[in-house]
Amino acid sequence: MNQTLKSCLYIVTLLAVMLCSFECFAQEASGRSNGNLTKVRFMPNWMPQAQFAGYFAAKELGYFEDEGLDVEFNFISQTSTKNPIDMLEQGEVDIITNLFVSAMVAATRGCDIVNILQTSQKSALMVVSRDSLNSLEQLSEMNVGCWRAGYYEIIDLITLGEGIFINWIPFITGINLYVFGAVDAILCYSYSEYIQLMLSVGKIPEERIIRMENTEYNFPEDGLYTSSTFLKEHPEVAEAFVKASVRGWLWVANNRDKALDIVMDVLEKSNVQNSNRYFQGQMLDEVLRLQYDNQGRRSFQPISVYDYSKIIMEFRRNELIDRYIEFSKMIWCPYRKELAKGFGYE
C-alpha cells in the first residue's frame, strides 16, 4: 500500500477515535445528558403538596434549567410501602427529600446517604390528645396513633427516652383514628395532619397539644439528600440542585399566591384530587415558618456539629443505633458562605 494512504488512514482513524472518545468524554463529563441539560431524578418524600413548593417553583420558573438541570419528579403513592431512602440506596433516584433523623439512622445502618441542604430548621412533629396533655410522660399506656411508614426512630426515642410504654397504633394516612375516637392521641405534623385535624374538628386548645419544637426532641426535619457516590461523581450537579432549590424557596417565600398557583397546578397534573387551595396555603405558611432558624432568618444552614453530636449521642445512649457516623460523612456543605447569603437570590 501507498505510504501516504497508510498515513492518511492512520490519521483519519486516530481522529475518529479521538472524536469518539471526545464524545464519550463529553457525555461522561456531563453525566446522562439531555441536550444541554443534565437529567436528575428527584423524589420528594411524600405526594405532591405545598411541602415541596420550593422545588415545584424551581422547576416551573426554570431555575433548575438555569443551573443546567432537567429535574424529573418522582412521587411516591399513598399506599406504597416504597421508601425514598430505599430508592436512593437502590440507585432508582438521585436526590431525595427526607427527615434528618431518618437519614441519620439509615446512615448508621450502612446506608449511603449524605445531607446536601437543610430546609427545615425545627421539628414539625406534634402530639394531639383528646384530653389535656402537659408532658410526654402522660402518654404512658395511651393508644397513640403514628404513621405506619417511617419515623420509627423518633417514636422509639420518645418511648425509651421517657421510659414509658406507649401503645402505638400505626395508621397509613389521615386523621380518622383521632376523629372517630379510636385513639387517645395522635402524632401529626404541624403542616399537614394538624391542619387537617383543625379542619375536621375545629380549633384544638393548646393544653391538649405538645409540640416537639418546644421539647428536647426538637430535631430539624426536611432536607435534601443524595448518595456519596453521586456526590463524588457529580458534585457540581448537587451544588446546582441546591442552588436552584434555595432560589426556588426564596421566591416562594415572597410570592405566596403565585407559589400556591404553581402548587395547585402540580396537584392537578398529578391527579391529586382531595386537597384544596386553602389547605395548601395553610401548609405552605407553616412549612415556610419551619424554615426560620432561631435568629428568625431563612438560613438553610446545615445542622451544627454540636446539635448533630447531641442527637447522635442521644440515639446511641438509647441503643437505637449501634455506631456513630462522623459529621463530615453525613453533612456536605462546601457553599456555607454563599448559602448564608442565599446564593445572592435573597
Binding site: N176, V179, M198, L199, S200, G202, N276
Partner: peptide, 26 residues
C-alpha cells in the same frame, strides 16, 4: 361526612377537596 368532608354539594368542586370548616375559613 363525619370529618366534615363534603360528599354532596351544588358546587361539585368542593366534594372531597374541602371540609365544611375549610370552606368556611376559605
Amino acid at each position: 361526612s363525619r370529618n366534615g368532608t363534603y360528599v354532596a354539594h351544588k358546587d361539585t368542586s368542593l366534594i372531597f377537596t374541602h371540609t365544611v370548616l375549610s370552606n368556611a375559613l376559605d
